[in-house]
Structure formats: structure tokens, C-alpha cells
Design a protein around this nucleic acid. Sequence first.
DNA 1: GCGATCAGTT
DNA 2: CACAACTGATCGC
Length: 708
Amino acid sequence: MSRFAGRTREYPAVSIDRFDRDNLRARAFFLSHCHKDHMKGLRATALKRRLEGSLKVKLYCSPVTKELLLTNWKYKFWENHIVALEVETPTQISLIDETSGEKEDVVVTLLPAGHCPGSVMFLFEGENGTVLYTGDFRLAKGEAARMELLHSGTRVKDIQSVYLDTTFCDPKFYHIPSREECLNGILELVRSWTSLSRTHVVWLNCKAAYGYEYLFINLSEELGIKVHMNKLDMFRNMPEILCHVTTDQHTQIHACRHPRDEDCFRGNRLPCGMTCFNGTPLHIISIKPSTMWFGERKKKTSVIVRTGERTYRACFSFHSSYSEIKDFLSYICPVNVYPNVLPVGVTEDKVMEILKPLCRSNRRIMEPRYKPLGTLKRAHKRELSDTDEDDLFDSELISIRPKIAKQQGGEGRPSSTGLSENSEGNVNESTGSCKGTTTYTSLKVDFVDCEESNDDDDDEDDEEESEKNTVQFVSREPDATSTATFNGVTSDQQESNANIPCWDEFFTVNKLEESSENEDNIPSSADAGGSQSLFSDSDGLSDSTHISSQNSSQSTHISEQGSQGWDSQMDTVLITSQERSALDLSRGGSRAVAPVLQESPKDTQLDSSWGKPPGQNRPCAHDGACGLKSKGCEKAAEDGTAHVQDVLVEISDDSRTPDLELRRDSQSSSDFEIPLTPDAEAPHPDKLHLLYKKLAAGENIISEKKVS
DNA sequence: GCGATCAGTT
DNA sequence: CACAACTGATCGC
């Protein structure tokens, strides 16, 4: 949940995603997306009064968000006070204080956030610097690099502060399967079930919130089956969504809800009341989208987990994973970063320990003396602000540009973002910065899923036993060791940074190494540390993932989980990924698996999944709607990375309980490689080494590689 | 009675 | 596990 209090330090005259208390005095309001936790106070009487007493106060949001908001009668009163701003279109807004007449201009740009229909990030540019408020977002690795408006010429804009969605900013959420992978897993499961007969239907147990639309669209497009919903008037002006959903209950895919929908399901009834088709009882399975994550080392596993005789859990995430967050932030490389969310059980200090190393001023901290290095990386004008800490802005900002002193007070409300990073800081724990982090380690914990399968403690009671057979995955990856590290963050980051050499690592490797065990969290740099391996790369292979794109690949596979390994009874299993190939499949599984589905349409589409439905390219809503830009999609297509290779489905006994085994190729991808820095070329390991040596010796190397 | 908050559920 | 919502109880205006 967002703990952002509504205002940024730089532009306190605007309130974003919070409309209560002091925010009522804002000169302009911004709404990043239509989820309740970002709409606090939006329909309160205090705000209504505020609107009545003003001619100028407006609420700015994307066209899709406006549509979704106004469709709800409770927000109808906003009708004459909302201004929809086109996505990716810089717009100047004058912030006028109606009592004093004071005016301040800012240019705001909406950037697609990939969180739910209409979700955007807000980029503010004005006298107090450039500020990015991300709202909630899910952007794959490299996505920031593709956003033109985050750049100025070939470089990333000089961003003063980023107010970041840190929902999964904890090493335990290191990897979350890509949208493509998740979508394909669900698609194949739904396909295998619904193809058995007209009475085999699927209930998508989705939460009452926007964000699943791209799933519905894709299932409908691929299978030709519309998705049943309770109502769809909110999409009346969004044809690309509307044509894939229906209020007709006679369909095989349902996403309808009922207050007691779980009970309905247990009684073999759909939430909408359907129980049979032409007199024949329905065979219903439920698929519950939920977040599944994997620690750095264990990135394998299926994106679908069977949790009961007729129940499945499918991986689905509205937020970026830890590695995606780090990739995003390190690419932006702002002077300051403020977390909008604190992951459960994580303190602000801990989050800041992770984020600060990815910001400009901090780099200094890590290697104070070698400032020159910094220049190596980015040509920006960076100034050295030093104080990393406290004054986040002041000193630095000032140096950079004329900034207004005023706000300090503003900060007063710091609650929201926390800020004071250190001030309060307790920091300490770890002292050694990096290492400290390591602790998180709970590596082992990362896993997740499997448990359910085995024990099933929780959820579904009923069926447990049967299930056992089902679930699966798990596997472990043998070597993971060092490699993993490397792949993980490190590579990402590097990629994102356009292969910028990492000086720190060069010098810190050793230590890092030691800690390697837990590395996940090590600050990026640290990861990089692993870089040695980078060079050697040998191991890298094991996971190959990183290199190219990766993530997708991993996703699916197995997970380690030492605990129960596969032996358990899984009949199903699914694996995926290449890696798997590496492993031998011989798993002790019990039953044979019959390949049922042939290949899926290969290319078809994953891409479209998100973005725009292929067929239609109507620009509008969807950018917002889907969040992702088509560009990305296309790119994926080009790479040809994303495909589902084959799927195996095992139908265990009767048709009713299909165990599915899906095997997917890892290559699917979600990410493609993208050179982040346009002109940069990948440094050759040897060269890098040389460079570092020179640098260490104080020699000049500039001419050589000037990045960007 | 409405709204905000909190705990518990899903 | 988490998210985003919903439900119900409590408290205050």
C-alpha cells in the first residue's frame, strides 16, 4: 500500500494520489490510476467543497483513468474538474494560487506504467528540477530505456528525485516471471481445460480491481472465448477491451464475482449462478492470479501451481520485481529516491540501503575518492553533491539549478516519503553498507509456491490430498552458486547501464565474493562485484538467462526448494525453461505425461498480450490500458523470443482433473536486450580490466571510452 | 446515518 | 508470501 502522503518535496503545490488533509490545498491534483489506495479522499465532502470553491483546481490523469473514474457514479461530481492528458505528451500546466495569484509553471508528462488500464507515471519538469512519481508500476527490464520522454537527446534526463513504487523492493522478490510467461501459462491451462468439452469452464478468481484486462483480452483472442464479467460499462468506450468481455454467462471463461464466490465455486457453481450447460453440469476449475516470486538463485518453477483438485494458482503481478525495480532506478539514476511503499516486514532504512547505491549522490559514498569514475558512466552534468544524506535536496539541488528554498517546510510532511534517510537512520546495522544487506538472505525463503502444493496447509482444504499429485515444480538448480549472482542483478544492471563499467566492483570484489552466498541484495554494485564472474562468464551459462533476455526464460522452471523436491508426487509438472533442459528431465515423477497440446501458436502473441491487442491498434486507450507500449512488444516479436514451445498436458484420470504439465520455453521473453545507452558499446572485459588498472594507477583514460 | 479506521478475510 | 477489496465492528461528527 502506498504510504506516499501526496506531495513531492520539489512541487508541493500539486498533490498526487492523495486527496485528504493538507492535500486539499493543492493547486492541482493528479491521479496515477484507479485503485482505491491511490484515491484516498477523492470523494470526500471536504474535497467536494474544495472544488465548489474553485474555478481552477483540476484533477489530471490519463484518458483511460478519467473514463474509469467517471463511470463510477460516486465520482461523477468530478466531471467538470477532470482534465485528461494524453500519454507521452508533455503538457504545461500553470499552478495558480487562487488567493495570492502566485503562479508556477510545470511541464508534466504521463508515461505508461504497466500496472493497470490507464496507469501512468508523472514526470514533472520545472524550476525545482525534474521529478518522476511512478505511482504503481510494472515495467520489464529495459523498459525505461525505451521511453523517449525520459530522455533528452540520447541521454536520460537529469532527474532530481524519483518517488518510487517499492512494493517488491526486497531481495526475496528478486524475480517475478514476466507477463508473457504468466500469460502463457494461464493460456495453456485454460486452453487445455476448455477444449475438453463445452461444459468445461474456467473461473478466473480475480480481485475486484483493474489490472486483469490484458489477461482477458489475450485469452479471448487466443481461444476465441469471451470472458464473462458482472458489468462492463466502464469499458464502453474502450473497444479493444469491450470486444473480449461479455455479460453473457454462456461462455467458458468467467471472471464474474459474487460476495460468496468461493462458496459458489465449492458448490460447483459459478459466481454468476451458472451450474450447467444445456442440462449438463459444468466442470469448473478456478484459477487464482497471485504473485509468485523467486529469489535470485531459485528462479525456476512453474507459473501455474495446482492447489487443489479443481483449483490452480497462476502467477500474476501488477508490480515490478526487485530486479526490475533496480534496473529501472539504476537507469534513471536520480539524485534522490523516495520509496512510496514499504514491503511488509521491511524498514525504510533497509529499502534505502538498496536504493541509494543506485542514485547519483550515493555512488560517491561507495567510492568517495574516485569521483572521476563517475564521469565515466554518464556524461551528465552531475554535480557532486555530497551530502548524501540529509539534505537531499537542498544542497544538491541548489547547486544544480536555482531552486526554491521554500519547501523545506514542506518536507514537513515527510511522513510520506521518508526521507530522512539517514537522518534517523539507524542505519547501521550493517555498517558496511553492502554487506549489510546481505543479510536479507533469507534466501531460502524465497520460494513460495511449492509449499502449497505439498502441504497445502492453507488454502483449500478440501482437495488437498488429491493435489498432492499435482503440484510441482521444484527443482533446483545445481550450480547456482556463483553464477547466480552474476546473472542476477548484475547483469541486469549492467545491461541497463549500457555496460558501464563498474568501478566499485572492481575494487570491492573480494569482499563481495565472500558474501556471495547471499548476494542478492547486495547493492548493485556489489553484484557487479561478482562481475568477475562476469568476465569469466563461464558459469554464466548455467543460467543463461541473463544474457539475453532473460527473464523470461527463467521463469518457469523449477524451483529448487530443497525441501521436497520433486519426488513428491507430482504428476503434473511443468517446467519450462531451458534451463530445464539442462536438467535432466528424468524426474521421478510418477506418471507419464502425455503431450496433449501441440504447440501453441508460436508467435502469436504474447506480445500482444499486453499491449495492444494486435488487431487493433487503436492508439487510445490502450496504451494506457495496457500499460506497455507497443514498442516493446514489437521488439519482442522481432527478437522472436517469445514463444511457447510446447505444452504437455497430462490428464490424469478422468478428464476432470487435468494435471497439466506445461513446458515452456524459456525463451519467451519478456525482455529483450536493449542497449540502454544508445551509443555505448559493450566494454570488452579485457579492456575493462585495463581501464580499471589505469584508473587505479591514476592514469588518464578518458579518451577511450566515453560513454555517451 | 455517513464516513473514517481497523481487523479479519479473500 | 502479496495485492486490492470487501466485510464488519467501532468511533466520531
